[in-house]
Design a binder for these strands. Structure first.
Lengths: 340, 340
DNA sequence: AAAACCTGTGCAAACGATTGCAGAGCATAT
DNA sequence: ATATGCTCTGCAATCGTTTGCACAGGTTTT
């Protein structure tokens, strides 16, 4: 990699001043300290010579890296990719670079990557892998690392986070179903150690109440992960239980896909024999067979907002933690209908 | 961000030697220079005290950052996400960090990000945004920046790249169709300034020849981008042309989806009235309606291999450029059948 | 006119590593 | 016994910035 040859000293010599003057002239914050004319000469020389500050020197001196680390469980999961994109969009505009790490949901890998990020002195972290109780997050907090959680939160509310309003989302779904006439609706929950899984399930029970439906433990199955395979297995258990129900709501779209799979192998047609609704409205959920009715989570915005909050906190370490809840939106498609 | 407090000097004082000795003891390459016992004491003290080298200092001195930049048109496009994941997997294992940049296919943004990466002295670049003639790539080449192209290449073969074998892929698709009995198959091509678009189209015409079908310019439409929308428009033009054909092959899965859309609005049923085949086998292409028969590109492997080649080149700058072609695999699903 | 204060600049010390060079100590060759 | 060589360690410079401090010169205050 060719190095950016020209340094502060070069410019200083060119203009005939001390490097420190050049430094001050080039830094907006200190520019006022130097005489207008000299500053002009310096900036002129700087871009004539193609000066590019050396980030290592800068960072060594200031301990700022203009870099943030992003942790996701799976880069290729359409429920996470948009978050990164959102983050990248706002961070790029502010001159930051984003480093990503894929953790595949393994705690050890999360820790390793957080450590790596810290060693590299990232200015902050956005974490989309947090569990409700997460020692790693606690650590970061006590270490004072600026961080914001995306799409998930911990039980500790002293940490910035941006999520969608999962419980009212879940509630809304139930109302939709109730309105269609469903009385017995099953639920396939996500992992309860994730706020997403936990709160969406909570939304389900609230929705039950709100619509005068009663909770039946036999109608809810839990998944160990937000995956198609887990969804399929849970659906299989549900079907095998012999219980009666006319709709299944899934804790997210991946699980919903798993349900599709199982229904299909059982010869049930989704949207007619049985309704199913997902959550997230991830890419292509409108292309499935049938198109999935689902709760749209504004993933891109969540990422962007997380980045903004992080930036705020980085620029001013005194900024108190802030938690924002985006409001999701129900997208009606073909996988729900009146009960058979 | 709390700084990693302990430095070489601290360890030096603790053990009672000069910082340079500590440096040597801790660096595997120079470890041999220091007496075994002392080295032992040093490493012992180092991890007792929790020493973490300061990357800025290291990089400032050595000009190495253990960082690579990755350029993709769209992080959220399922045809690119796996590439990043593949890259991350191998790079993480080698202690590198990956910085991503989303360029949305805008050249100016590509340039800006490459510049940013260079300023930050990344050790290398993997670029998935290259056009067949790409001044940006030329520049990088003459600057000597280690880089490897992923999933695309330029006409200049002196640049490392890893792609799937697009032309034989395209050819294979045609043979499949011919075997089913299709004689008139249309093609919806991708942008010809991208090697992917160009070579896949080339595969189409070779496949025509190989199966004794003749080329009919009226049966091919070109897209300006690998998008659903472009695919839909091209399909619309094709259908409107009044030409006769029994199958459409798309330059990639996104375009294929666009074709699905158009067929549906025209009341044609895909896989019966007309066959369509995609390319890439991106996530969920098995979930579409109907499941898409497509050419599987080993995206994850492509990313991983690109990372490996880059690493090679970084460690030894004399390594000559290397281009590898992965072999794709035809995945038969429901969108193709015998001609109506 | 002296005292006090600005304002703009330069000097030099960091930041935390790596590395060429010099030299101390000791073993081997002459 | 001297010369030669080898191995290990320390010294100090360096990478390119930022920034506290000193200070020169000019302005304002008393």
């Amino acid at each position: 990699m060719a190095s950016s040859r020209v340094t502060l000293r070069d410019i200083a010599e060119e203009v005939g001043v001390n490097p420190s003057t050049v430094s001050r002239a080039l830094n907006p914050k200190t520019r006022g300290m130097v005489t207008g004319e000299i500053a002009r000469q310096i900036t002129e020389a700087a871009d004539r010579m193609g000066y590019r500050p050396n980030p290592f020197a800068y960072s060594l001196r200031t301990n700022r890296s203009f870099t943030v680390g992003v942790l996701v469980p799976d880069l290729t999961n359409p429920a996470f990719a948009p978050i990164i994109k959102g983050i990248d969009n706002v961070l790029e505009a502010s001159g930051y670079s984003v480093m990503v790490a894929n953790t595949d949901n393994v705690a050890e890998r999360e820790r390793r990557n957080v450590d790596k990020f810290r060693e590299r002195h990232v200015d902050g972290l956005v974490i989309a892998t947090a569990r409700r109780h997460d020692p790693l997050i606690d650590e970061c907090r006590t270490e004072g690392t600026p961080l914001v959680l995306a799409v998930r939160k911990t039980t500790d509310s002293d940490i910035s986070s941006v999520v969608s309003d999962e419980v009212t989302g879940g509630e809304t779904i139930m109302s939709h179903l109730a309105q269609l006439g469903h009385r017995r609706v099953a639920y396939i929950a996500g992992p309860q150690e994730l706020s997403t899984g936990f709160e969406r399930h909570q939304g389900y029970v609230r929705g039950l109440n709100a619509n005068n439906l009663e909770y039946d433990a036999g109608l809810v199955e839990f998944c160990d992960a937000f995956t198609e395979e887990e969804g399929r297995r849970a659906a299989s258990r549900l079907l095998a239980s012999g219980r009666d129900f006319t709709a299944i709501v899934a804790a997210n779209d991946m699980i919903a896909i798993g349900i599709y799979d199982e229904l299909q192998t059982k010869g049930l047609v989704c949207g007619k024999d049985i309704s199913v609704v997902g959550y997230d409205d991830m890419l292509f959920s409108s292309k499935f067979d049938p198109p999935l009715t689902t709760m749209h989570s504004p993933l891109l915005d969540i990422g962007a907002e997380a980045a903004r909050i992080l930036l705020e906190r980085i620029e001013d370490p005194e900024t108190p933690p802030r938690s924002v809840k985006m409001t999701p939106e129900l997208i009606l498609r073909k996988s729900t209908g009146k009960p058979a």
